[in-house]
Simulated scan of single mutants.
Amino acid sequence: MKQEYQDLILEATSAASLQIGGKIQTLWSGYGQIVRVHLQGGERESVVVKHVEFPKDCSDTDLSHQRKVRSYQVETHWYQNYSTNEHCRIPECLAARSFGDEQLMVLEDLDAAGFPGRRTSVREAEIKACLRWLANFHGLFLGSPARALWPVGTYWHLQTRPDELEAMADRKLRAAAPEIDAVLNRCQFKTVVHGDAKLANFCFSEDGTRVAAVDFQYVGGGCGMKDVIYFLGSCLDERECEKRADRYLDFYFSELRGALKERVNFSELENEWRELYSFAWTDFHRFLLGWMPGHHKINRYSRRLTQEVLQKLRQRSDGAKR
């Protein structure tokens, strides 16, 4: 690690010295890495450093590259300018700085903060802990403008995925995609969505009852159902979705009601977002069909919801013609 990066870490943590620890993970498409840094002579024993390095051979006209560059700019702004609370915990940002084609984010080590657990499969209590986090997050930012974040949160929304739309073989869904996107974007009750709320981006307490979330590259405005469907799809298979998704949706709305404490007409919000649940799921299904047609998340549950959405759109169109 370059000396100027080490100097930034030492300055941000008031530590006397540091030692670079193990690599936690490589960033998507080789855009850098996340490492743990051990500290001596300060209040913290360690921090996590997200080191972004933009590839030199990427063209400025490369849409995928530009999306990733923008995503790290958004994440840096998020950590520097937004905060949450203990009900939707995120790592504290100690420093963030750009160095030309490289960026450094010095973040609180969530392992040391009491969230050392990572899960590839989850029990009921752990699913509810993540849904509780999402409900409190959405409640906290309900009605807040997504200033300097993505105007439309999530990495798969239609505007950022023209290539995947063009590659789709399902002509009916491809034709309906703009209207599905418009329905989601027209929602009355908007919040800030995490944008990549998969199971892998949640850190668990040892007993699994509390979580913190990381990876805010695609945080932005939108309907909270986008996070909910993406999370459920990341930890439930099609059989479990058919059997348990409705129950988890009930739990989410119960938690959201408590988080909002009568700040809005909750029945209107719940009615709107429940209606948009299938639209959000279909929107992600649309992305997968164009991005990776053989993906395991393309299943009967997704296809059933998609057919329901297409039927609703046909009924709306027929009603408008009468």
Rank of each mutant, 00 (worst) to 15 (best):
L94R: 06
N85L: 02
A113V: 09
S59W: 03
A113L: 07
H77N: 14
L107Y: 06
E126N: 02
T76N: 09
K128Q: 02
E75L: 03
Y72E: 06
C58G: 00
Q66C: 15
L63Q: 13
E126T: 01
A135F: 00
E86G: 06
S98I: 03
L63E: 13
I90M: 11
H87T: 13
H87F: 13
W133C: 05
R67V: 15
E86R: 12
R89T: 15
V52L: 05
I90A: 07
K128G: 00
H65R: 10
C88I: 10
S71L: 07
W133L: 10
F115K: 09
T76K: 13
L134P: 03
E124V: 08
W78R: 02
Y82F: 11
K56D: 12
A96L: 09
F115H: 09
T120E: 15
F54L: 13
A129M: 02
E124A: 04
E102C: 06
D60M: 12
D62E: 14
A112T: 10
S64V: 14
S121N: 10
L134M: 14
S59N: 11
L104P: 00
R67K: 15
G117P: 03
D57C: 03
K68H: 09
L107M: 08
A135P: 01
V74W: 10
H87D: 13
N81P: 00
L94Y: 15
L131G: 02
R67H: 12
F54Y: 15
R70T: 14
E92V: 13
N81A: 11
R118G: 07
L131Y: 02
P91W: 08
F99W: 01
G100F: 03
Q103G: 13
E126A: 00
G114M: 09
C88M: 10
E124G: 01
L107F: 06
A113Q: 10
A112K: 08
D57R: 11
Q80M: 13
W133E: 09
D109E: 04
R70C: 12
Q73N: 11
L131A: 01
A112M: 06
F54A: 03
E75T: 08
A129S: 07
V52C: 04
A135S: 07
R119S: 08
V122K: 03
R97H: 12
F54G: 01
H65A: 15
F115S: 09
E75C: 07
S121V: 14
D111M: 02
V106Y: 05
V106M: 06
V74Q: 10
S71K: 02
R123D: 12
I127L: 07
L104R: 01
A135I: 08
R132W: 02
R123I: 11
P116N: 08
C93L: 05
S98Y: 08
F99T: 02
R132E: 11
L104I: 15
S64L: 13
C58W: 12
R132N: 11
H77V: 07
I90F: 07
S71Y: 04
Q66R: 15
Q66H: 02
A129E: 01
A135R: 01
F54R: 03
W133P: 04
A125Y: 08
T61W: 05
I90K: 07
